[in-house]
Amino acid sequence: MNVLSLFRAMPGSVAQGLIWGIMALGVYITYKILNFADLTVDGTLGTGGAVAVMLILNGWPPAVALIFAFAAGMLAGLVTGILHTVLGIPDILSGILTQIALYSINMNIMGRSNQAVSVDKYNLVVSLRYIPAAIVTTVIFLVVIIGVLYWYFGTEQGFTIRATGCNPNMSRAQGINTNFAKVLALVLSNGLVGLAGGLYAQYQGNSDVNMGRGAIVIGLAAVIIGEVLGEAIFGKRLNFIGRLAFVAIGAIIYYVVIAFVLWLGLPSEDMKLFSAIVVSIFLAVPYLKGKSKTSFKKAAKNGGN
């Protein structure tokens, strides 16, 4: 095995991780703040990519295409929000329904399952052909997004989303329209995922109808890895802005680890299996840790004769 090839893969992994970090921030909003496991994102990422690539192919500036990718994502979040709040469909199912619907919509946007956009013909915002520039650009995106999120969740409106995610009964008793707060969070979250999709499609030079498959797992991985790492390093001093930053760091670590196991020789078709196992372990650890402190087995050992 050639260590040099692993090193050469690193900048690309970092760039990819940074782009997926934007999408992971979207997942953080729903999963952590709103307490809503939103599976829409698998579809939204593809929608963001499809919208961005088709606009660029039709002569729109790549930067403007990103704004529309963001807007398309927001629209997807709005649909999930309406399915859940107005039509009373359970959260996970609402997300799955939108996600499935988006597959057809993404196909219709692109006209076929894959559309390429070449960095030679268009002045793309990011591209894997210019990785250092892509890293700088994406870091700027992340800094601005984290700053805006930090501000937003400190506002009165941001407070309503946080309260709704924590205790909906209390929120309503304090005059918060919890349904509206849920829709707001879903719209914002999916907007970010759409934006990440638009960036990712430009980065890899094409949009594929399957590019969002499993995105939620990568998003969760980033959120959880970031949280575990952030709390390990900063403990109780980890504030909100730190948590957001660590989501992005979590995404980078995820892609670095992926590059590493690919380099070790894991077949790329087993990637998703590997991701699912990693996320399962990270999700299970806090639960098992709590159980190791108090369990029936332990009680029998301590109390039984």
Partner: peptide, 23 residues
């Protein structure tokens, strides 16, 4: 109360009961 929010943030939520909440 909202357990994951700070004491002062809980009070601030309550202080805005009945008011519109913007940015």
């Amino acid at each position: 109360t909202a357990a994951t929010m700070e004491i002062e943030e809980n009070l601030a939520l309550a202080a805005r009961r009945g008011a519109s909440r913007g940015l």
